[in-house]
């Protein structure tokens, strides 16, 4: 455990303010557009459609007119551990073909599509349902013209492999290249942010280096309102949430015992 802080220089993470999040779905669209995720004719088949960033909806369980809704945008959590002290997330330690790894220097969990054999064990192991399998070939019918907006920075996936949020890893590469070209060794706080964080019209998503106390994310996670989803599983996700509403924090985990509110 004491080694945890020495492992890597950077630990990129995200803080999502659920009080600000309006559930508009821009993060999902931004993510799909940035990462060449195709749209299928029937996207209502949620169990088989792909959305690296998925907005979940939850309510407080009360009756009209006390009902309230909250939205949980859920990217890949980029967990640090598997929940039993193993220093790789559940999905990484189970992968048969070493197609997914935790980069100890950035904290990003990668996915090599051309390495993945599609056994879906990682999918079964991930409690956040952050991993998606390509049940079909990407939907870019010939002559439809949609392939023209594909970005060359992210390789399109083939059928039969798993894909997931990469914290827009190519943007980190882009930022590094730029810093290198400018003769800098370090990238600045806002030089590398994910597409979802950039797109959020309500500025609910903050992205940065959790190891750097100057970064906003590192300050935000100290808030008493900060929490992570399924914290009890001890997977140490790098995606944090903020909410001032007790019931929201309460439904983020499975509490066996009474939940103790923090705000009076």
């Amino acid at each position: 455990m004491k080694k945890e802080h020495d492992q890597g220089k950077y630990k990129y993470g995200m803080v999502i303010d659920l009080d600000k999040c309006t559930g508009c779905g821009t993060c999902m669209v931004a993510c799909a557009a940035e990462n060449n995720v195709s749209v299928r004719p029937d996207e209502s088949d949620k169990q088989r459609s792909i959305s690296w960033m998925q907005v979940y909806k939850a309510d407080n369980g009360k009756e009209f007119p006390e009902a309230e809704t909250v939205y949980f945008p859920r990217p890949c959590m980029h967990c640090e551990q598997d929940g039993r002290g193993g220093h790789a997330p559940s999905c990484v330690s189970v992968c048969v073909a070493t197609a997914t790894t935790l980069d100890k220097n950035t904290g990003i969990v990668s996915q090599i599509y051309t390495r993945c054999i599609g056994c879906r064990y990682c999918q079964a192991a991930c409690p956040y349902k952050a991993r998606y399998f390509n049940w079909w070939d990407a939907y870019f019918p010939v002559d439809k013209g949609l392939e023209r907006y594909l970005s060359p920075e992210v390789s399109p996936r083939m059928r039969g492999v798993i894909e997931k949020c990469s914290f827009c890893h190519h943007r980190l590469m882009r930022a590094r290249t730029k810093a290198y070209a400018d003769g800098r060794r370090k990238i600045k706080e806002n030089e590398y942010i994910t597409a979802c964080a950039e797109a959020c019209p309500a500025q609910a998503i903050t992205f940065g280096d959790l190891n750097n106390p100057k970064h906003k994310v590192a300050q935000l996670i100290k808030s008493k309102n900060a929490f992570r989803i399924l914290e009890r599983l001890n997977t140490k996700p790098k995606v944090y949430y903020l909410s001032s509403r007790d019931w929201v924090r309460k439904i983020a985990d499975n509490p066996v015992d009474e939940f103790s509110p923090i705000s009076g």
Binding site: V39, A195, E198
Partner: peptide, 28 residues
């Protein structure tokens, strides 16, 4: 290849709505 919000425009500092974000599909 991608539409993004502008931070140098007074209306929407950085963010845009989901429809605007997907505008390239309406183009191509």
């Amino acid at each position: 290849v991608k539409i993004e919000g502008r931070t140098d425009y007074p209306v929407n500092p950085g963010g845009i709505c989901p429809s605007g974000m997907g505008g390239l599909q309406l183009l191509y």
